[in-house]
Nucleic acid binder design. Structure first.
Lengths: 168, 168
DNA sequence: TTAAACTTTCAGAAATAATTGAAAATATAG
DNA sequence: CTATATTTTCAATTATTTCTGAAAGTTTAA
């Protein structure tokens, strides 16, 4: 397989993966493209490379910046904006985890809290069972929340960090 | 808030959560309904409760059974089929993790493998950078894969297990 | 200033995903 | 068997999400 083909396949793969985890396909593809690009790319270049419209690139790039996965690069002497992605994959994973935690886990924890304020007494077995289920979910979710915190704080094993540095 | 309201809200919440993680809303709602139902429910009952069609219930129940989250219950003297959900939330989490691993992580690992067979030599810096990115992703993905394995094997902390037993 | 270069917005169009509902298939009771 | 209850399938419809493209907005250079 040629490198260009492999890159193309990588972009498709990343896009499909995003889809099945609730992330818009084009957003994931732009991310993939920037991940494997040696230099920052302009909106124009992204449009051409992925055959998508200017508006689409603009919206998804903004969203990628909200996720802290992509940043604007100012190139001296260039008027246009260029974009590049965080290349350290461990860092990428941490940022995605951090963002999903903020956007989904934390609101979930809040919502579950509210479900527990019900009028029926705990002597009502139906109410008791419901509260027990909600409490179990809260417990498991907060465990995952903590696990994500641990992961975010954790550094990769030295060997891997070293390897990355050598290859970069 | 009344119990019925809380149950309704819970079903909506679970449905919305599913949506944002790539799981069809109705499937998640059926799961929620069965989670908080004291007794197994028939297709008819699920249809009424969620205002969805027979075909829809049938397809999503089948998918929930594929995920090992719901099982068919045979009720003596009843001709219709009834369904109930696994109630232990830690077990639910493990089964979802197991299934996503099987469906998405493992194919991903395979696909990444194939991207590494490229014609360009490793002396080509572009090829080198690409291979390094793919290798990093492989590394992080396999770490997560192992983390999921660990989670699947892990038992919940005794205290929690005890608590659950007391409340059940 | 002014005008060209570039970015952003967003209503409508297109693509994708989910749902319906009725017909076909299957299972069970008599 | 035959009739009836129940489940399954799937083409057509509906709902949802994503994308386009052109107009409006903004920035910069001269």
């Amino acid at each position: 397989m040629k490198l260009v083909e492999a890159k193309e396949k990588f972009i498709q793969l990343w896009g499909a993966l995003g889809s099945s985890w609730g992330i818009n396909r084009t957003m994931a593809q732009i991310h993939a493209l920037l991940l494997i690009s040696q230099k920052p790319l302009s909106t124009e270049e992204i449009m051409e490379n992925l055959s998508v419209s200017r508006g689409n690139v603009n919206m998804n790039i903004r969203e990628l910046m909200n996720w802290n996965l992509v940043s604007k690069e100012l190139i001296p002497g260039e008027r246009r904006e260029f974009f590049s992605a965080e290349k350290d994959i461990w860092e990428v994973a941490k940022r995605i985890a951090r963002e999903r935690k903020r956007r989904e886990i934390q609101p979930l924890i809040q919502s579950l809290e509210q479900l527990q304020v019900i009028e029926e007494t705990k002597k009502n077995p139906e109410a008791q069972a419901f509260l027990s289920t909600v409490a179990q979910i809260q417990h498991v979710v907060s465990k995952m929340d903590h696990a994500v915190d641990t992961m975010i704080k954790a550094e990769e094993h030295q060997l891997f960090g070293l390897l990355v540095k050598l290859l970069k």
